[in-house]
Write a protein that binds this DNA or RNA. Structure first.
Length: 267
DNA sequence: AATTAAGTCAACCGCGGTTCA
DNA sequence: GTGAACCGCGGTTGACTTAAT
């Protein structure tokens, strides 16, 4: 199927935006919104393609953009989420209010990748020491490492908090959320899991879950119980909406069932 | 002070998914 | 059912800035 070019190249401007262009774009969106990005530049009198306008608005001009350096909490959140989600920048950005996927992507490639690699190196060193001291732990470590994010390259699977067990998955959230989740909320997750604690071992032998398994928040946003046939030894999974209130709408549990067994993983 | 290398980040490109006629 | 149009995403580029020599 032939695809029309995203915009007519003739006469359209490229490169950095001028303050005047910004002003025009902001004024137009304030007045008319952006129901159709392709038509917008023409209506606004901008010599840009719709794509360029959209990008400029999303990444720079939107009023709810948070500018400035990333906090330590935000950086840790990105590392943890990247460990879980891989390069799904928009999904990561959805959990960091005011930050854009582009900004997060840049910060990852410039700062955090190295940081995470250093942590990995440290962990590997520590693991080696542990292995030398106690070889009987090997099996447990390895089986626990076989989780949903295990498909990540070594480069991305760095975080000690998020990568070692499902307990720690529950700590992966935004800096904002970290501030909001108190120990009781953690207990909620842990309690759910402890009900199934005796089942955990049997789930450790599950096949690696492909990245496509993870659903976007937008998908599960409106469904408190999204269930599906999963196959590959799993009969069903469900994504449950954790309503903590106070901005915690993006917190989910994942229920995985296999035969009579089931396990709820906080997400 | 001049040059080069490394780091940063805004913007572009191309692709896949979705919608609609 | 098909194809065109559109949107959103992730990868990449390249201009600019800063640090090192």
């Amino acid at each position: 199927m032939g695809r029309a070019p995203c915009c007519e190249k003739m006469g359209l401007k490229k490169g950095p935006w001028t303050p005047e262009e910004d002003r025009i774009l902001i004024a137009h969106i304030k007045k008319h919104g952006h129901p159709n990005w392709r038509a917008l530049p023409k209506q606004a009198g901008l010599l840009r393609c719709g794509k360029s306008c959209r990008l400029r608005w999303i990444n720079y001009l939107r009023p709810d953009i948070k500018r400035g350096n990333f906090s330590k909490e935000e950086e840790e959140t990105i590392i943890n989420l990247h460990d879980m989600l891989g390069n799904r920048w928009s999904a990561i950005a959805a959990r960091l209010p005011g930050r854009t996927d582009n900004e997060i992507k840049n910060v990852w490639h410039t700062h955090l990748k190295k940081k995470a690699a250093a942590v990995l190196k440290q962990n590997q060193k520590a693991n080696n020491n542990n292995n030398n001291n106690n070889n009987s732990d090997d099996h447990k470590q390895n089986s626990k490492a076989t989780t949903a994010h295990d498909h990540q390259s070594a480069e991305s699977a760095m975080s000690p908090q998020a990568s070692s067990s499902s307990d720690e998955l529950s700590s992966v959230t935004t800096g904002e959320t970290n501030n909001n989740i108190n120990s009781d909320q953690y207990c909620m997750d842990k309690h759910v899991k402890s009900d199934h604690e005796q089942n955990v071992d049997s789930f450790e032998s599950f096949p690696v879950i492909d990245e496509s398994f993870w659903t976007d928040t937008s998908l599960s946003e409106n469904s408190s119980n999204l269930t599906s046939d999963f196959g590959g030894g799993l009969n069903e999974f469900a994504i449950g909406h954790h309503d903590y209130g106070g901005g915690m709408d993006f917190w989910y549990n994942i229920l995985v069932t296999s035969g009579a067994d089931s396990l709820t993983l906080p997400f």
